[in-house]
């Protein structure tokens, strides 16, 4: 009997969890993110684009509701990819007319809930966003956004100290890069005689990556609008 009770509880619990609809999951995740009105975060940014050699940059990331985001390299220069505003997850959910959600179930390996968001607004640049949600912690672990104009962005988050705010310690942002080539007549390159590398898969894929490792966040202490100008 005892066993049956335990089994019933388990099944009920499982059913309860299972019972969370995609809408509910998204709503909870959103609610968690909503707690953050603004933040200022320090971090180290690593750029990995096939045609760019960039040093690791010390950056400050500023965010303010509803969708303002700015990555500032305090001392040096950083190439900031288009769509990088999406590293703030809140921005995924901003759409004037809301979304149609498609529940794709769970990912096999990680058991993250896969939910697709289709903007109802036909004029939206975003065609489709797919989020991978850690249901227990209510954290988005991965997100893919396909846009009309700027290809596909992919986000991967690692959480730590700031998980309670839904803020990642590390964000990996992947984006599509377009071809880069300048005529030699402009650059007057030095040709050192070495053989040109054959294009690797990386070039063919044309994916760039930016990784930001945050060291600390200052949350809800107010951020001046001027930093976003």
């Amino acid at each position: 009997m005892k066993k049956i009770i335990i089994l019933v509880i388990f099944i009920t619990a499982a059913l309860l969890v299972k019972a969370q609809t995609a809408e509910e999951v998204i709503a909870k995740v959103k609610a968690k993110l909503e707690k953050v009105n603004d933040y200022e975060a320090k971090g180290k940014m690593k750029t990995n684009v096939i045609f760019i050699k960039a040093p690791i940059a010390n950056v400050k990331v500023y965010y303010k509701k509803p969708n303002k985001l700015r990555i500032n390299n305090e001392s040096g220069i950083s190439f900031i990819p288009k769509g990088s505003m999406n590293i703030n997850l809140n921005n995924i959910f901003i759409n004037t007319e809301g979304f149609d959600l498609i529940d794709m179930g769970k990912e096999d390996k990680t058991a993250f809930r896969i939910i697709k968001l289709l903007p109802k607004d036909e004029n939206s640049d975003v065609v489709l966003s797919t989020v991978y949600v850690d249901e227990q912690q209510l954290l988005i672990r991965k997100a893919k956004t396909t846009t009309k104009e700027n290809g596909t962005y992919e986000l991967e988050m690692t959480y730590g100290k700031y998980a309670a705010w839904g803020l990642a310690d590390k964000v990996n942002f992947q984006f599509n890069t377009k071809d880069y080539k300048l005529p030699k007549g402009i650059t007057f390159d030095y040709d050192d005689g070495s053989k040109k590398k054959t294009p690797s898969d990386k070039i063919k894929n044309k994916k760039g990556q930016v990784e930001i490792v945050y060291s600390n966040y200052i949350i809800n202490k107010g951020v001046s609008d001027t930093v976003f100008q």
């Binding site: 040093p55 040096g76 880069y180 650059t187 040109k196």
Partner: peptide, 19 residues
């Protein structure tokens, strides 16, 4: 002064200010 960006025909070099 700041970091230096060198545009080459097939790539971009970015060098830290102090370097």
């Amino acid at each position: 002064t700041n970091d230096m960006v060198v545009l080459r025909s097939e790539g971009i070099e970015q060098i830290k200010n102090f370097d």
